[in-house]
């Protein structure tokens, strides 16, 4: 019973891979890709090969990875809460993950155990998600959820700035920018390796929940009648979201609004099915993140713009547009 139309969720993924290739090409200029690739394949340890492998490639891979994690997490949260404004960035889950990462990093723990960085970020994400679900409740109205999310976001952001101010390192305080308005600049393959297992584990958890998210589309009572326990779905989705987002935030800082825009962008093309949205949104999230990350390198700004600034400049007006259209068209899924 499969048709080509049902494969439509694969499309954003394909587009994301193409953009990742573009991302490798974009840089301060002058790198001969052919030469770099040839050197790399021949195992020659030349400067072009080094730039390609250790600077350009990690950035493109992280664009894919972080974007997919955020897109998928946004779709999962929207599906679970049946709330179109749910998103790890807006609701403070990312900020809590950043707080976890900041504490682990600036305390010096990460120097001893590098894996402490994503683990702490995931822990922060789990606590943030739990606070959100407990505080607002799963059946919360759009407004309640948003208010609670804003509170958590502000609290986590303030706690991050506070922890950074406690560090005796003079640079630490100015790095609040990175953690609250993320970036993919000058990341290395080490960062890819840190984030990859977390994002994959989170994505697998979320992917396994896709049928149960579909079952929730007629409300929690009907889901229960269909043999799906919403409370357990909430736990698994919460954990999956925290793992994917935590892994991403640990290496990129908070990149907001990707998880908000991506699901909305793909939903009409997958018949508004929450499960299919999950997969398509992962691809769309990667596409959005890569486009934004390419844009910050091409824009003629004095200094390279933070990626989180770029996504917020697009995402915040989108949030406003959503709010307006929900009211005007009384369409609860907008």
């Amino acid at each position: 019973m499969r048709s080509t139309a049902e494969r439509v969720w694969l499309l954003p993924g394909v587009l994301a891979l193409l953009l990742a290739c573009v991302s490798v090409i974009v840089g301060p200029g002058g790198l001969s890709l052919a030469e770099a690739t040839a050197d790399l394949l021949a195992g020659r340890d030349t400067v072009p090969a080094l730039v390609l492998l250790e600077i350009r490639l990690p950035r493109a891979l992280l664009g894919l990875l972080v974007g997919a994690a955020l897109g998928m997490a946004g779709a999962a949260m929207q599906g679970l809460l049946r709330n179109p404004l749910a998103e790890p960035g807006v609701l403070g889950v990312s900020a809590c993950a950043a707080l976890g990462a900041v504490i682990a990093f600036y305390s010096g723990l990460v120097r001893l155990v590098p894996a402490a960085l994503p683990v702490a970020a995931i822990t922060g994400g789990v606590l943030g998600t739990a606070a959100l679900f407990v505080w607002a409740g799963r059946g919360a109205t759009v407004a309640t959820l948003l208010l609670v999310g804003v509170a958590i976001n502000a609290l986590a952001g303030a706690a991050t700035a506070f922890s950074l101010a406690l560090s005796p390192n003079p640079y630490a305080f100015y790095e609040v920018m990175f953690w609250l308005m993320g970036s993919l600049a000058d990341r290395s393959l080490d960062h890819v390796l840190l984030a990859l297992p977390c994002v994959i584990a989170g994505a697998i958890l979320l992917f396994r929940m896709r049928g149960r998210l579909d079952a929730l589309s007629l409300g929690e009572e009907t889901a229960l009648a269909l043999g799906v326990a919403p409370a357990s779905v909430a736990r698994w989705v919460g954990l999956g979201t925290a793992m994917a987002v935590g892994g991403a935030v640990a290496v990129s800082g908070v990149i907001g609004f990707v998880g908000l825009i991506a699901p909305h962008a793909v939903r009409p093309f997958v018949g508004y099915r929450p499960g299919a949205t999950l997969i398509a949104s992962a691809g769309a999230g990667a596409v959005l993140t890569l486009i934004a990350d390419i844009a910050v390198r091409l824009l003629p700004t004095e200094r390279e713009l933070q990626l989180g600034v770029m996504t917020a400049m697009v995402g915040a007006p989108f949030l406003g547009w959503l709010a307006l259209h929900r009211r005007q068209r009384s369409a609860p899924w907008l």
Partner: peptide
């Protein structure tokens, strides 16, 4: 080096590249 406590700023100096 400015401090014995870590910062991203200085972590960049140990970038693999």
């Amino acid at each position: 080096a400015t401090s014995d406590r870590p910062s991203l700023a200085e972590a960049l100096m140990t970038h693999r590249a």
